[in-house]
Amino acid sequence: MEYFLQQLINGLTLGSIYGLIAIGYTMVYGIIGMINFAHGDIFMIGAFVSLIVFLILIGLGVTWIPLVLLLVLIVAMVITAAYGWTVERLAYRPLRGSFRLAPLITAIGMSIFLQNYVQLAQGARTKAIPPVITDGYTLMTSPDGFVVQLSNIQIIIMLVTIVLMAIFAWVIAKTPLGRAQRATEQDATMAALLGINVDRTISLTFVIGAALAAVAGLMFVLYYGVIDFYIGFIAGIKAFTAAVLGGIGSLPGAMLGGLIIGLIETMWSAYFTIEYKDVAAFSILAITLIFLPSGLLGKPEVEKV
């Protein structure tokens, strides 16, 4: 029981990170109907920028950790968002309304490019930093001595995720940007006719998605302390799985899917074999798409003859 509780906490933490990345996938898929294959690598860039800015600040002698984290968060979000914007502008916008496979290929090309770009700029070796936030709370201790811990970093990750989700839900539901986005999602041509700047709306979608991926990147750095240029690929696929599981296009779905994938992965590693944890996630993806193509919270697609 105690062991399970610990895995639950770990799974929810991991799931929060997946959920933050998944939002980027689900928003882009919702608005332009493509899998932004490079999104996982945007997350990776976010992680690298976070790590580097963190090291710079420590090097400059800023040691009050909350301030450091806030600065890192802001810088990482801005720069990663710039990457998101640029990728959309260069690789996707010229192909809007074109052959369906073309943006998928440019997305894969961008993914390859970004991975190798970071590898060349930062080297292929893994980058590790010592834990930044160490303390935590002991929730309970089982009779045989197993300690259930909730670390501060886990609390921060879950809190940040909840706060961001709330802000985000508010933006989509209440602001003109959110309305423009939902309108473009429904029918881009009609939205354009009604005076919505579709290009700008799509760009903003990429910017928001990338900014959230940057937050996920920072969380990843803080939680694991180890990153390399390849983390984007696997995390990207899992986050995409989360988006699909939750119902692509649905924001609460992306978060829910993220949590479920995080839990499944953690539980699988804890109770079965850690080697096959990726197989578990990929199998979930395949099973979901085959038997529940519209996901848990998505709207079913009706085939018209």
Binding site: L90, I105, G109, F113, N116
Partner: peptide
């Protein structure tokens, strides 16, 4: 040789944008 895959990715983008078909 180190720039091989970097250019590969870039070329994928450029060719697709230039000739989507």
């Amino acid at each position: 040789g180190e720039y091989r895959m970097l250019l590969f990715g870039l070329l994928m983008v450029v060719i697709m944008v230039w000739k989507p078909r």
